[in-house]
Amino acid sequence: MWKRTGNDADAITSDRSRFDGEAPGKVLDDIAPRPRLTPHVITFANEKGGVGKSTLAFHIAVALAHAGQKVVAIDLDRRQRTLERGLSYRQGTACNLGVTLPSPHYSVLDYPSTAALYQTINRLGPDADFVIFDAAGADSPIFRRVVALADTLITPINASFLDLELLGRLNPVSGVPERAGCFGQTVSELREEKLARKMGLIEWIVVKNRVRAAEKRHIGRVDDALERLSISHDFRIAQGLSERVAFRELFQFGLTHLDLDLIPDMIRPQASSRDEIEALIEDLGLRVESREAGGGPTRRNARVLKRTRQDFRAALNAVL
């Protein structure tokens, strides 16, 4: 784990003062008196947008539901609401096609407070196996709390040195990590504070997302840098989803390639796309008890005109 020097400690104090002066101890003081969350908490967080947080959160939530897990998914980005939109599209698809799709219970946290966060979890699924937080791409009090609550913290990044800067800075000549980036600081401080209070470990996994085959030479340099940072910052590296139309286009229907076998008369899923999702779940090391998949919050009994259903199915097949 990253260790502070005198200069680094001064830098951290300066960085905190730019926000609201809230130290890690204050974050844990807010969490500690509250009931301990029994579900496994997975937080998707990075202080940078456009790295695929919501895409990964959506796919992981659906994959866990397919495995028969009770999943609660909470979107903390009340402006973009990407995760919520994907899951609401999923409800619409289930309704229009007259099928049952394994789905998480979900909501947007419109009031970003710790009390509202716990109330939302208790409302959606106090007996859930997993709670998934999709944090907005900016530092805030609620951002730090969902990082601190995480059992598993997942940080997607693109194959870019700009993305690595948020984790930690490397000497461009020697390649040696010099000090943590702003997000790396936040995570390290919260991990240390949580561990010191014996409130559990935060396993940090950095997921290299949206990798293009044409960038192999550049990716090799990023991989070397990421490996160095993983040692100094104590995180694991996992492989995410490739930049592929197959993932992007299905989002507008709220579907993943794990769903297509459940829809009659549908083009079969691409094996490579399913393999990527399954490999990601395995990489994350989530403990999943095999159960029969549940239907989740769908509206199967709603009346839909036959013509509407045919048009919807044709549009979906066109995408595939």
Rank of each mutant, 00 (worst) to 15 (best):
M1S: 14
W2L: 10
W2A: 10
N7T: 11
A11P: 05
A11W: 14
R16P: 08
A23H: 10
G25F: 00
P33Y: 05
R36K: 14
R36I: 11
P39F: 01
V41D: 03
E47C: 10
E47R: 12
K48A: 10
S54M: 01
A57W: 01
H59V: 05
I60Y: 12
I60V: 15
A73W: 00
A73R: 00
D75F: 00
Q80F: 06
S88C: 06
R90W: 00
Q91H: 07
V99E: 10
L101Q: 02
P104L: 06
L117C: 07
Q119P: 00
Q119C: 04
T120H: 12
N122P: 12
N122M: 15
D129E: 08
I132S: 07
D139I: 03
R144P: 00
R145M: 11
D151F: 02
T152Q: 13
L164C: 07
V176Y: 12
E178V: 15
T186H: 04
V187H: 02
V187A: 03
E189N: 09
E189K: 09
R191A: 06
E193L: 07
K194V: 03
A196S: 14
M199C: 07
G200V: 06
G200N: 10
L201D: 15
W204G: 10
V207F: 06
K208P: 04
E215Y: 04
K216V: 11
R217E: 11
R217F: 10
L226F: 03
R228K: 15
A238K: 02
G240V: 01
F247D: 06
E249S: 13
F251H: 15
Q252T: 13
F253C: 04
D259R: 04
L260N: 08
A271R: 15
I277L: 13
E282K: 15
E282G: 10
L284N: 00
L284R: 02
G285C: 09
G285K: 11
L286N: 06
A293D: 05
P297R: 11
R299I: 07
A302H: 12
K306M: 08
R309V: 05
R309H: 13
D311H: 13
A315E: 12
